[in-house]
Nucleic acid binder design. Sequence first.
DNA 1: CAGTGGTCTAGACCACTTC
DNA 2: AAGTGGTCTAGACCACTGG
Lengths: 235, 235
Amino acid sequence: MKDTARYRTVQKDLRRSIIEGKYRVGDLLPSENELCSHYGIARMTVRNALSNLETEGLIERQKGKGSIVKFKRKSIELLSIKGFTEIMKGKEHKIDTVFLQAPMVSQWEDDFYWALSEMEIQAGSIFMSRIRMSGEKVIMVENTFLSNSNLTDFCEIPFINKSLFDTLIVNHDIEMTGVVQKFRAIPATEELANSLQLGVGAPILEIIRKLTTNREGFFVYSFAYCNTDDFTIEA
Amino acid sequence: MKDTARYRTVQKDLRRSIIEGKYRVGDLLPSENELCSHYGIARMTVRNALSNLETEGLIERQKGKGSIVKFKRKSIELLSIKGFTEIMKGKEHKIDTVFLQAPMVSQWEDDFYWALSEMEIQAGSIFMSRIRMSGEKVIMVENTFLSNSNLTDFCEIPFINKSLFDTLIVNHDIEMTGVVQKFRAIPATEELANSLQLGVGAPILEIIRKLTTNREGFFVYSFAYCNTDDFTIEA
DNA sequence: CAGTGGTCTAGACCACTTC
DNA sequence: AAGTGGTCTAGACCACTGG
């Protein structure tokens, strides 16, 4: 049996605390020396953990001060929506996320965009569909697929922070490590035009993403369609 | 005077060698112990340098084997063009980059999209405009702006690997550390329609990027407009 | 088997922030 | 002045790769 590396334990503990809100943005983490004595390990080991959290974008470190919680996840994970038009600037625009289809076990589509491994096909897929709205306006339709392997009770347990990624990392120890994302501007099909409350043929931003994780062979696939009349998408 | 940290020296040396092609993709770097004795420093110091190169995406490390050159830069820097339609798949599509306007010293535009610091305004801007073509077809128009500060002979010396980023890092020690990139799908204006050989109103992918660097207050700004009929843009 | 990177220790001095 | 993170040392044992 291989034991978990000590720095991994520290890293995971701190990450969980940050994501679950025990530390808030701007808070200081315990100092390196405090962590050393709390876990009974050497300083370099603690520093390894903190260094990784810094790379993950969860904290920032300042000489003479400490480790400060940032919790701005790398762009890897986020599709963030920003007000664009003059009308939106300065105004509050809370974005709501609504399930059109809650996570459900299903088969992979026959003509799935990405090539799938034998393992993924065997496991079957989990599918969900979400829209993001600003008030009554639909800004984005996002369809997400992931492989249904070893995700105990994934479809039953509610999301942490309403976030797929927070849920994967805290409940299933799956961390996003990279992304391939492709962008196109396409004319709205009738179906998309309906969903996004636009005219047929209007310009739509299509974002196709394959996210890699720390779990070998496990990927998250996402297909998003955005109305960018009043918002830009940061990715 | 503060001396450069030893691990920074190692990191910079190795990075330069990789970018300039002394090591090729798949090659092994010297082992950690070799680097230790070559530089006369402790192993943890060498490991710090290698760990950073791994984060930069330049190398990959394998237990029992060594540090392998990857040189797949993080998506931070690249706007890469991939064939999309059936017609393109499997076909060669070499992308040529052509200067519409070679780097030139100029003023910042009055209504520049991003807010500029006093320092940037004082320094003035360097502007360049490039198009990327597949055969006769224009795929992307990209306008790039950067602050004209301490970039000795930037406009006179030719680019390394035809790449702005390779040139900045090797010649001027400026490394890209992050990016804010915004995406929209917009209808082609007459001017864009002309440049991209499309009809007015056709969907165009707009990419607005602000790249941060290791040099305080120095940013690279890029505005790209893409015809995504036959290609997707990876970013 | 020898060599590699992965993890870890128990110290050390420094520059910086805060009080 | 006390505490913080940044850098660095000189060891150690391990799991893995390759011949």
